[in-house]
């Protein structure tokens, strides 16, 4: 196949993105662990990852720019370079949010907490992390059939989000936790929801990469296709 060098560069680019994603995913894992145990020590381990992710993201961005300048990619190559840039952005942002959350855990280590809200937070964190991982899986395998499942999983996270917000606004009378913790918890809920969204977006970008269509219209098509095949 012609353009072998170019193809190799593209493959390598994808590898780097997946690698970055896995590292972010592992940070998210640590974050979940820290959140579940309210363990500031564990959370501390992830302080500083953000700048590392950002650096890696900038490197990938630069490689994309060079590839565009030198190889003038079109069609699927263009979609790949474009998708790589967008996905990298999602990954880095998820990483940043992860560090924010870890920060919050460290700073509210000894504070009073609302156990219901805390439990919801943990569940949300698990959901967000797994969503993020699945989004990355979809990107790595380009198995866009699985992209559909992401939206369903996201709906679940959204549900938890509403529940958590409800708990923030209507605190449990007995153990409402300290006001500072409550504010932090509200922020963490928001961050977790954003992390989940980044995961869904990575899947959506992959749909565009493979089909050339935006997630929304692609999703519509897939839904319709499923109905069709059910009727068969």
């Amino acid at each position: 196949m012609p353009r072998e060098t170019f193809q190799r560069e593209l493959d390598q680019l994808v590898e780097e993105v997946v690698e970055l994603g896995r590292e972010v995913e592992s940070s998210l894992g640590t974050m979940v662990e820290a959140l579940q145990g309210q363990d500031g020590e564990i959370a501390k381990r992830e302080i500083g990852v953000d700048s590392r992710f950002k650096e890696r993201g900038a490197e990938i961005d630069e490689e994309c720019m060079v590839l565009q300048a030198r190889q003038a990619p079109v069609a699927r190559d263009l979609r790949l370079v474009y998708t790589v840039q967008a996905v990298t952005n999602h990954l880095v942002r998820a990483g940043t949010l992860c560090e924010h959350i870890c920060h919050a855990i460290v700073e509210t280590g000894g504070a009073d907490q609302d156990s219901d809200l805390s439990a919801t937070l943990s569940e949300m964190a698990r959901g967000a992390r797994s969503l993020f991982g699945e989004g990355l899986d979809v990107f790595e395998s380009r198995d866009i059939d699985r992209a559909r499942d992401l939206e369903a999983a996201d709906d679940k996270v959204d549900l938890l989000y509403s529940e958590a917000m409800n708990l923030v606004v209507n605190p449990n009378k007995e153990e409402s936790g300290s006001p500072e913790w409550r504010v932090r918890a509200a922020l963490m809920v928001h961050y977790l929801e954003r992390i989940a969204d980044h995961g869904v977006d990575v899947g959506g970008r992959t749909v565009f990469l493979v089909t050339g269509e935006r997630m929304e219209s692609a999703m519509r098509q897939y839904r319709e296709r499923r109905i069709d095949s059910d009727e068969d």
Binding site: A75, R76, T211, G212
Partner: peptide
Amino acid sequence: KIFSSPNRKETE
């Protein structure tokens, strides 16, 4: 369309 996401594989 042709240069971003053509419909046929040969075109791409």
